[in-house]
Design a protein around this nucleic acid. Sequence first.
DNA 1: TGCTTTGTTCGATTTTTATCGAACAATATG
DNA 2: CATATTGTTCGATAAAAATCGAACAAAGCA
Lengths: 99, 99
Amino acid sequence: MAAYDHPDSATFELIPVLRALADPARLEIVRHLGRVGEANCATLIGTRPKSSMSHHFQVLRESGVLRTRIEGVQHRNSLRLEELDARFPGLMAAILNAA
Amino acid sequence: MAAYDHPDSATFELIPVLRALADPARLEIVRHLGRVGEANCATLIGTRPKSSMSHHFQVLRESGVLRTRIEGVQHRNSLRLEELDARFPGLMAAILNAA
DNA sequence: TGCTTTGTTCGATTTTTATCGAACAATATG
DNA sequence: CATATTGTTCGATAAAAATCGAACAAAGCA
């Protein structure tokens, strides 16, 4: 599998980022990554099928919320916290700290 | 016209708030209110028809993002910044400061 | 009362997103 | 090579949101 391309942080846009975060499955992914740092897709799938999850990861990736690194068969995801904070200061902190 | 009912700040939920903010028309409304403090609907309508705008105000109101006060024929809107910040610290600041 | 202003509600579309099974691709391992 | 593991892609459907004209409602004013 070829590496994904990720948007440059200079091109992050607020609305796609907010839309990416405004979904229960994706917010859960984001919060889990906020705790564990990095995780592959499989460990983040709850009850939903793989194809649904793949879609959610794509939305998160394309908006800039997370980065996916390929290692063997696994795709390891992590939040792009520094870049997000540079572009939207305080946003991810607010999301991750929210009750 | 009877007064609107607004959700209590204790019942604000993150996903509806994010969804409310993740729309171009609504984000523009929010940013405008962030600058001017209070405004009636008419001054916030750009090119879109009234019925569309009424819908956007409803979404913002029901999620807790803004409050609508009726004064005569006009409906005056303002952000619920203190309450939002109490529940989601830093969130609205991040939104309003974002490039 | 009749007219104007401000905004809502209704109803019908259209557009956008989410969902998920099935087939596929890439890597690793026996 | 055969098989398992991990995740993507495709395609069809369903669900959710946005859009907007037209009719309506409330308040103010001549």
